[in-house]
Structure formats: C-alpha cells, structure tokens
Simulated scan of single mutants.
Amino acid sequence: MPDAHALNATLRGVLRLASLTSSNSDILAALGAAHQIVAADSHSDAPGLEGALRLGPDLNIDVAALREARPDLVLASLSVPGMEKVVQAVQDAGLNTLVLDPVTVEGTLDDIRKIARATGLEARGEALIQDFRAELARLRRDVPRPPRVLVEWWPRPIIAATRESWVTELLAALGARNALEDLEGRSRPLTLEQVRAARPDLIVCSWCGAKKLRPEVIEARGLGVPVVAIAESGLGRPGPRLLEGARALRVALDGLSLA
C-alpha cells in the first residue's frame, strides 16, 4: 500500500513515478502508467518512456539526478543482484520507495498487485493478473515425462536459474521441470560437469545484459542437448513479459523429441 506521501501526491494529481529496474518499468507500462514515469534506469525499454530522465544502469543509479526529478514514489526490485546498495542510497536520500523482491511467478503477480494499489490502478492490475493466469494455463503442455530445462543466465562462468527462481514455477506451469530444481538459491555458477549431471533435455540461452545471444557458444560445449535463445526480457524480468518467455518456451518444448 502507498504511504501517506504517495496518497497525498495522488490527491494533488498524477503520481510522479521513478523506476530503477526493467521489470518494474514493464509492469507500469502494462498498467498504462508509463507516462507517469519521470525517471528510469537506462536498461528499461518499456514503451512510453521517451520523456523519462535516464538515471544510468540499474546498479549505478544517479541518486542526485533521481532526487531532482522529484518522484512521489520510487520503485525498485531486489531481483537484480546487488540492488540493495542502490535501494539504501535512495532511501537515505529521503525518497519514498516501494521495494519488491519476487522469487516465484505467484510472487511476481503479487508484485503487480502491489504496484497497482500503490498507483491507484487496482482494477487494471487485477485484469492484468487474470489475463496472465489465463494465458499461462492455455500454454500448458502435458506429456508423459516432463522435459528437463536449464535456463542459462551467463556463459563464463556458467550461471543458471536454480530452485528459488520464477523460472522453476514458470516451467512447471508449462508442464516442464527446472533441471536445477534440486539446487537451492535463485541462481548459481556451475561447472560443465554439473550441467551434464543435471541431464537437461533443453538448454535456454537467456543471458542477462548481453547485447547478443549466442546459443552456438553453448552448443560448442559438446553436450548434445538442443539449445534455444530466448531474450532476457522474456525470462529474466519478473513481470508481465514473462508471458513472452512462456510462449517461446512452449514453441521450444513442442519441438523436442523425448525418449
């Protein structure tokens, strides 16, 4: 829920928003509030941010510039590793913040609800959540043996999504399994032998922050496992664009031939 500062801002007129992560910018855009974003990190690419002041990369936010933008509410997310220091600096600057930390798909949908409430867009938020649930249910693929999927966030060292990641729940909703669901944590570095031991039926190249995805790098490891590329915007951001990743995953899963 918004605090008194945000509520007073709402009464004065349009709430001035700042977003420090791409996932929150995506949520605001899906809620129809992109035009209220007065400042955003340089990675955010949601439509409607043309007039927003750019604050630099999410882990190197220009807090002084953020303060000068006079936001009524700043949205941050600890889903970006290392974001804690940025959040502390923003709070030390006296800015009103809403800090999210989703781990699962359900947690992501709950964050959509929190942002919708904080911005006075509850009805839009509920509609967005219901549409998300309905499409994800339509994408489910039931097979005798759920395929094991490994989602790779970075190639050197190999870093992939483990149990406490929205990837695990997203794959389960599609009728698949996270090949690393037995490993605790949100993600972790892996050796090539650990990747092999996970016995993936499919490896997804979804490198975070990479200008170009190169699935051929993964194929060159000689594991003999099919590799597909899915943009980080579809799998690495806990927000409505996870549906983009789910659609791409469904296509990839349909193309598998399992023994």
Rank of each mutant, 00 (worst) to 15 (best):
V149M: 05
Q130W: 02
L192D: 05
R113W: 12
R54T: 04
V86R: 06
G175D: 02
L20E: 03
G120L: 09
V227C: 06
L75S: 13
A118M: 03
W166A: 08
V87T: 10
G32T: 06
L183W: 12
A210H: 15
T104Y: 12
R141M: 13
L180Y: 02
L73K: 14
E106G: 14
G234P: 01
F132K: 02
A30R: 08
A123P: 00
L243F: 13
A179I: 00
L170N: 10
G13N: 10
P71C: 09
L258T: 11
L17A: 07
R133K: 15
A127K: 15
W166Q: 08
V86I: 11
P240S: 05
A173V: 01
E84L: 07
P215W: 10
R250Q: 14
R250P: 00
L121A: 08
A52W: 12
A197E: 10
I158S: 02
D45N: 11
N60L: 08
D111L: 03
R113I: 00
L98S: 08
A161S: 08
A76G: 14
R156W: 09
D3N: 15
A34K: 09
L78S: 09
A161D: 01
N24K: 08
L20S: 06
R196S: 09
L258G: 04
D101R: 14
P240G: 03
D101F: 09
A134C: 01
W166K: 09
T97I: 03
P146T: 05
L78D: 01
F132I: 00
A52M: 09
R54N: 05
A64G: 05
A137H: 08
E152T: 02
L78P: 00
G185Q: 07
P189C: 10
V251A: 15
S23E: 10
D58G: 01
R54E: 01
H35V: 04
A39C: 04
N60F: 05
A6F: 03
T10E: 01
R199K: 15
I230Q: 06
T162D: 00
L235D: 04
V204F: 07
P155N: 13
A33D: 02
D254Y: 04
G13D: 02
S25G: 07
D110L: 03
G224S: 09
I230M: 07
V204L: 05
S165M: 04
G236H: 01
D131S: 12
I37Q: 03
E216D: 10
L256R: 10
P2F: 13
I115K: 14
L150G: 07
G94H: 06
A52L: 08
A65W: 12
V63N: 08
R145W: 12
T168Q: 13
G234L: 04
L78F: 11
E216K: 12
E84D: 12
S165Q: 05
L20K: 14
L109I: 03
A118N: 04
D254A: 11
L223K: 12
V167M: 13
R241F: 11
D41C: 11
T108Q: 08
D201H: 13
G51H: 15
